[in-house]
Design a protein around this nucleic acid. Structure first.
Length: 111
DNA sequence: ATATTGACCCGGA
DNA sequence: CTCCGGGCCAATA
């Protein structure tokens, strides 16, 4: 069932620690769906759970997926900045101290 | 049942 | 930096 898939995906999202981010594809992969990047996006689009840290999910290249300038976009940007991220345009800057090793490797390669 | 549409991803040009 | 093409998968029309 799809609802079950969504549940597992949102479960992964809920487990992302403050100050760290994960790509849609990575979220899906950890939820057990290797090629479910779009599935993760769909799950987030529908879900409106109170404490869900949806803002910690960004595109694989570090950019915010929401439409630039939209209310949702600004809200995500606001929350990310509140967790210490620097936003260069629509993209996350890499000068972060608390970083996700996996995403880092995917984005910028090993240090 | 077919077609289009996304909060996607990747490699190449 | 952008644009394309192909792949992906559930929701929606």
């Amino acid at each position: 069932m799809t609802a079950e898939r969504y549940r597992r995906i949102l479960q992964v999202v809920a487990a992302i620690p403050p100050g760290r981010v994960m790509s849609y594809g990575e979220v899906a992969r950890r939820a057990g769906f290797p090629r479910g990047a779009r599935l993760a996006a769909a799950a987030l689009r529908g879900a409106n759970e109170p404490g869900l840290p949806w803002h910690r999910v960004v595109r694989a290249d570090g950019r915010i997926a929401l439409a630039p300038g939209s209310p949702a976009f600004r809200e995500q940007a606001r929350r990310l900045r509140a967790e210490g991220w620097t936003l260069r345009g629509t993209r996350l800057a890499r000068d972060r101290t608390l970083r996700d090793p996996d995403l880092d490797r995917a984005l910028w390669g090993p240090d």
